[in-house]
């Protein structure tokens, strides 16, 4: 259910250049996604999200200065988050902050496609619905629906 008229704006956040590279490479297969920016640390990510208002954040957890969770605390608004990390112990916390998916490094292109698919089902054209779908409301709805079910507003 992705928007065909304008591509999904994604931001890659990872402190390792190689990890950003492999994500960029795998995302190239998804023509509906455009990489708006790449960030090497949490501070940059917070700044970029405020400036560019991307639709999707591919977010590493262990990073210098601000970790992935701290980044989420600092950004307001309704960006969809997919965590990408080598650590499996944060999965429950990721669920609590309403990430749509949690990718464990190393991951396959298929697994990334699945996560993107989940994002599409979770937030159809969400970026067009900022006023219609406030963040606290979204939190409540997502909490009850879990990772994989279709959630979010149905406006077009």
């Amino acid at each position: 259910m992705s928007d065909h008229t304008s591509p999904i704006q994604a931001v890659i956040v990872d402190d390792e250049a190689l990890a950003r590279g492999v994500m960029r490479e795998m995302l190239a297969a998804h023509t509906d996604i455009e990489i708006a920016a790449e960030c090497g640390n949490g501070f940059e990510a917070v700044k970029v999200v405020a400036e560019m208002r991307p639709d999707l954040l591919l977010l590493d957890i262990q990073m210098p200065k601000l970790d992935g969770f701290e980044v989420l605390e600092l950004i307001a608004g309704d960006v969809t988050v997919i965590f990408v990390t080598a650590y499996d112990q944060y999965a429950i916390r990721a669920f609590e902050v309403h990430a749509v998916d949690y990718l464990l490094k190393p991951f396959s292109p298929e697994r990334l496609a699945e996560a993107l698919d989940r994002r599409a089902r979770a937030s159809p054209r969400r970026r067009r619905c900022r006023t219609a779908w406030s963040w606290p409301a979204a939190r409540g709805r997502r909490r009850s629906s879990g990772f994989s079910s279709a959630i979010g507003p149905t406006c077009t």
Binding site: E16, L18, A19, G21, V22, E25, A86, L104, K105, P106
Partner: peptide
Amino acid sequence: LFNSLHSISALTTV
């Protein structure tokens, strides 16, 4: 190990 494998995964193509 996981991070190293991820680096290898990234390097295989580039």
